[in-house]
Nucleic acid binder design. Structure first.
Lengths: 114, 114
DNA sequence: ACAAGTACTGACTTAATTGTAAGCACCTAC
DNA sequence: GTAGGTGCTTACAATTAAGTCAGTACTTGT
């Protein structure tokens, strides 16, 4: 993994949401637990491979927990931990910043509409 | 550049601080304008090449402005724009989250001490 | 000439991340 | 057999980001 420098707190937070998908995944879990397939459908463009990898990393990092149910078809749910929920408050602030400054920011990669 | 998906606001914010160095650079500018060389010294591990690239990108994106003074030796200062200052509030929240959860988070890349 | 200061830039390499296209396992229904 | 549902995993390829090591320009000082 990329080593993040900087202020000790900021480095940790940046590592937590590093990469293209983690912040989005974390936000998709903010209101309730979600299953793998539903996550995949709600996040356009993400591959099963990358989704699986990111979920594993976030579970390892303590941001989310993975609940396996003894059912057929298999049912696995992902939910935020307290730490993940707390970080989601900041992710929400980021999104609000983005909405407020969408017209101020030039040459910025556009997000998919949602 | 990596294309960010997701909620339109979140995608824009993620693009704004994407990569290893942007959030840190933005934070280093939070209290006053700083010159290139000082930024380099205050951010351990960053190369001049990458610092220069990131500053250019952030200027293009409207997060910071670059002030050139007619002096010798050359004096160039970088300062946050209102949008950048606003985003720094969220960067600060991220850092606080990191400080609060440093002991909760496992297997997380450690940041350089500061 | 050398050294120091300032702020970069370019060629090339390395590292990290993401993407593509399969495949696996289990069950149920037709 | 086929199809559908569930949740992944693997081999390989492609893309992106960062790093290394030069180099540029200007001035001043020894």
């Amino acid at each position: 993994m990329r080593q993040y420098p900087a202020a000790c707190g900021l480095g940790i937070a940046l590592a937590a949401i590093s990469g293209k998908w983690k912040a989005t995944i974390l936000w998709e879990l903010h209101s309730r637990p979600v299953r793998f397939g539903e996550l995949r459908r709600r996040i356009p463009g993400i591959s099963e491979k990358v989704l699986s990898e990111q979920l594993r990393a976030m579970e390892t990092d303590g941001l989310i927990r993975r609940d396996v149910y003894d059912e057929v078809p298999p049912r696995v749910e992902y939910a935020v931990t307290p730490a993940g929920a707390s970080l989601n408050a900041t992710v929400h602030a980021l999104a609000e910043w983005g909405l407020e400054h969408v017209s101020d920011i030039r040459a910025m990669a556009t997000a998919g509409g949602r």
